[in-house]
Design a protein around this nucleic acid. Structure first.
Lengths: 217, 217, 217, 217
DNA sequence: AATGAATGAGCGTTCATTCAT
DNA sequence: TATGAATGAACGCTCATTCAT
């Protein structure tokens, strides 16, 4: 670090900059949370001076929003794309949806984003709202829509899709938070694939052994 | 300050003051998160001067840990107590467990604690570890234990309890985070009771309409 | 400075502080102008740490306003007081008014205030407005009122008091600005007393030699 | 940048660019004061990049001085010119002098210069000195000279020209500062022409009604 | 000559922490 | 034990200045 005679104090690379800054900022925000992230650290990580950040983002909050926005677009594109190539059937669609999300978000560095948003929701309602409107509402529509579809076709039992969608999604959220908060304290890491399998198994067929399911709460 | 001569045996325990501080701190931490909580505000809320805090807690972090520690005791006492009065059967025990948790934590001010721990886990691994060891591991043992029991008795289908327990618990976590992060943006508040009902319904009987459950992922 | 083992790091003197801070701030503001004044310097001058300023004044601007306000009250009290003990006659009152102002403001450290306000009026319209409403409007009322009175009693020629008051006051302003801006470049300092004498002489009797005053512009 | 081969003899003088820069800088300095003026804004206003400024002026201060210097030339040329066409008589010359100044400076955008210099005199004694030597001393010589002349010819009463010249000039200064600092808070703008009329009226004939002028201070 | 990306010192402000009372 | 005035390090942000292009 010290021994690396900077190739030149003036690197001009306005084109690559924004992406580098966003990467650095994502990493810092995810590592430390919004408030604890110092712009100095972001800049250092990106290899620029603090002031440089301000050429690209007006302030910390704008940078933060840019990071969130940026990190989520590809994920959603991915999900949307996959929805086209998929087989029919509500169940199959649900499986694909959850699988895609698990692969693209929960299992990647992007998982830091939901974690971050949840952590900072209290302090930055604006961010939470942004996330709610841009991300959550879409996820809700996708999942609840598929649930309703399945119910309509008789594939699924009659359930309240408005509430069930959160139940369906909850294990994904759990996996994200687990990895960010508690996985470190366990000997074995969480096997996301297996986690999803168990979830899907339970989701479709339930806990109850056959014959027990007559009795409902 | 006041000339009270007789602390006598009626004086409040030395612990009394800390309790007020902890209450105030809990409220502030939950409202604002760790970093954004100002000790000034905690002190004001507790009706003492800022310096007084330092008589009881060495610094902000120690206070934080004390708050988390303290807030969890009653919750677990409650759950442990109820476990005795409960009916037999894995399913009934699971229902009771989840219901108790929903009532005592998710639906109360205590829900701020898990929210807080998750939010700050990145910055304070120590707290996360503490929470993991004191709270999560117990919850895991209770839930996974009951699952294994149910599988053993044939009440439940054969599932991997080591993974399934998180799935079972996830909707509770979801409800907590939802209320703290996104509920504000929706017209209707989340009905915790209904949320739990739907969860239990799905949990035991699954989504699949009867006859469909042959095909597994 | 270095050799003065601070008598104790903690000087508690909340009562004296505000005045000391205002004195230091007045000096700095007057010396450097608003924008160029660094709160660090104000604090150092007052012998406190920078943060201490914020116990007393919410921000730089509030400090500035406090300084201005504080510096002007005594001056105006003085003028108001003297108005009572004075002899009758518009001319005598005008003389007293201008003399008092010259002594109490133009000739004292307070002269920094008008100078400062004028200098910063562009950047801080709020301050200018404050000064206009608190100070200038009073001065205008006093002077213009006396002019009208003199015209009414026949002591003064008929002049437009709404415009004349500024003419009457202008040499006072001039003396203030002169001392702050250009006096340093002259061998002899401006003799305020003489300046006022010449002003009063011209003001009452004009430049024109007797017999010439028939011809008016 | 563009491939212009023939600067030829029609190209603008090298000075042309500086003129645009000076105009832009004058406007900004006058609008905001020295400290608050951003070179970015100056550059943008002049239609060049920020770095370009540094081709012509070593730093902000040099630019500032150049602006002041530059802005004063035309004004003085004007006054000097008019001095030739003028009628005889000290009074007439004084009237012309003040009228010219009022029209050419106080009533124009140039009024920003004195305002600026006065405002920044504390921070930039160098500028104040420059202004004093280039502008004020000439004004003083002109006015005081005319006063002495009038006294010598018996047109004026015997007054101390060394002090009276400032009194004579003060209302002009007042009008400039008024317009820049306080005019905005009044319903009606200051009528410069009327202001000057009242000034001249008082200046030559004084306030005192005929017959009162026996009594002098 | 001109550009504008990059720099970094500097300032206003905040707040956890200290300590004389 | 309790107070709250005082501290000072730290951070977000600005902008004059530099320099590779």
């Amino acid at each position: 670090m010290l021994n690396r005679k900077k190739p030149s104090r003036w690197q001009r690379r306005a084109d690559a900059r924004p992406q580098e800054l966003l990467d650095a900022a994502l990493a810092e925000f995810v590592e430390r949370g919004y408030a604890a992230t110092r712009l100095d650290a972001v800049a250092r990580r990106a290899g620029v001076a603090k002031g440089t950040l301000y050429r690209y983002y007006e302030n910390k909050f704008e940078l933060f929003k840019a990071v969130v926005r940026h990190a989520l677009v590809p994920g959603f594109d991915e999900v949307a794309q996959r929805q086209h190539e998929q087989p029919s059937g509500a169940r199959a669609r649900l499986v694909l949806m959850l699988t895609t999300f698990m692969e693209r978000v929960a299992g990647s560095a992007l998982s830091g984003i939901p974690k971050l948003v949840i952590a900072e929701a209290g302090n930055f309602p604006e961010v939470a709202r942004f996330y709610y409107e841009e991300v959550i509402s879409r996820a809700r529509d996708m999942v609840a829509g598929t649930l309703r579809e399945g119910v309509a076709t008789g594939e699924f039992r009659a359930i309240d899709a408005d509430y069930a969608w959160r139940i369906v999604v909850a294990p994904l959220l759990m996996s994200i938070l687990w990895r960010h908060s508690f996985a470190a304290f366990e000997a074995e890491p969480l096997d996301l694939r297996h986690h999803l399998e168990v979830h899907l198994d339970l989701l479709f067929d339930g806990l109850a052994a056959d014959g027990t399911d007559t009795e409902r709460t």
